[in-house]
Design a protein around this nucleic acid. Sequence first.
RNA 1: GGGUCGGUGGCAGAGCGGUCAAUUGCUCGCGACUGUAAAUCGCGCGUCUCCGGACUACGGGGGUUCGAAUCCCUCCCGGCCCA
Length: 370
Amino acid sequence: MIEITKKEKNSRSLTFKTKSGVINTPFFMPDATRGFVKSMGLDDLRGVGMGPMVVNTYHLYLQPGMELVKEAGGVHKLMNWDKPLLSDSGGYQVFSLIHKNPKMGKVTEDEVIFKSPLDGSMHRITPEKAIEIQFDLGVDMMVCLDDPCPNDYPKEKIAAAVERTIRWGRRCKDEYARQIAARNIPEENRPLIFGVIQGGEYLDLRKRCADGLAQIGFDGYGFGARHVDSDGNFLSEVLEYTASIIPENALRFALGIGTPSDIVKCHSFGWDMFDCVIPTREGRHGKLFVWKRDADIHSGSFYETVNMNNEKFRHDFSPVDADCECELCRNYSRGYLQHLFRMKEPLGMRLSAIHNLKFYMELMEKLRAS
RNA sequence: GGGUCGGUGGCAGAGCGGUCAAUUGCUCGCGACUGUAAAUCGCGCGUCUCCGGACUACGGGGGUUCGAAUCCCUCCCGGCCCA
């Protein structure tokens, strides 16, 4: 079902089908964590040519809650989004909550118990429950509950996280099979399921995790945990190595990556799919991505980031990017955008998110064409 | 004209004898943001600096004091009340 076209070096291009449509790789998904891309409406998303997006199990489970999602008829119906959706398991949220503050929860072999940061109520999540919720969401792609511990943990703790991630991967896969059977889901509507490869910056642990998960068998494999070191340096070697040990005919999902240049790098390593808050968040914060003239995405710096709040743009009545055809660049100037930000007008955030996502969409088009 | 309260850094507004170059908020300048507790967060914001400090500052002027944004006198300006 996954069609692969091999390209130069490690990079490649795949075509695969989900119940909500065909997807060509590489592709980037914005984070619609709580069922919406912050500040953007459906017309905005369609306007930039948006395809698949990411929603989050943990956030939707807490708000608005699964009762409402089910009542709406699933997350697609709730959002009125008919293109593919991938749900992240929520492992990242629960574990980072607990790793930052042990009082927020407890991890045992069987389950994770955590306190909702919203109202302090206690919740428990198991690998089985994470999968069941994702079936209730009705997404096209789902992710196993994993243990993404911080990279600076001692190796033995990361090794333990790897083993737990594998064991939980097994339980997720078993639950997945049960849900498929119980819900009578035909093969063509079957959601894809992803395991997540942990192991910090240790290549042997990444290998152990990838092999353990591959033995269980998944449609795709994700790269888990932070991909930058404590100084913010991108862990290229780990990303490149991990991509190389994932089964050839499986999807490679670089979770949480990244900046435009990180994505280009990872694509050259063989990663197929990406998601990140950067384009939308940085847009809302006033930082916009702008192509350099005659940009060659494989030649280092092909873009720059422009902080539209900088004083020097106050009197700049030219568009953010004269060659860009997004709603912002077609209609408004830099000086006007800065005015919107200074006035804290939500329109500024929306236009900037649109612009940055358009930039990312164009980047992915260029990668697919290259 | 009389009385009264007040004049503090871009703004608002603390401080009311030393620990004050002066709390705090906003504005302003810059930076960060990578499976979204993020319309958030951090740093800076008198001048100069060999980064230890030095200098000029709390309406103007004068005084008291070892020492004043803080007390006294006077002038200027503003609010309110009475004529």
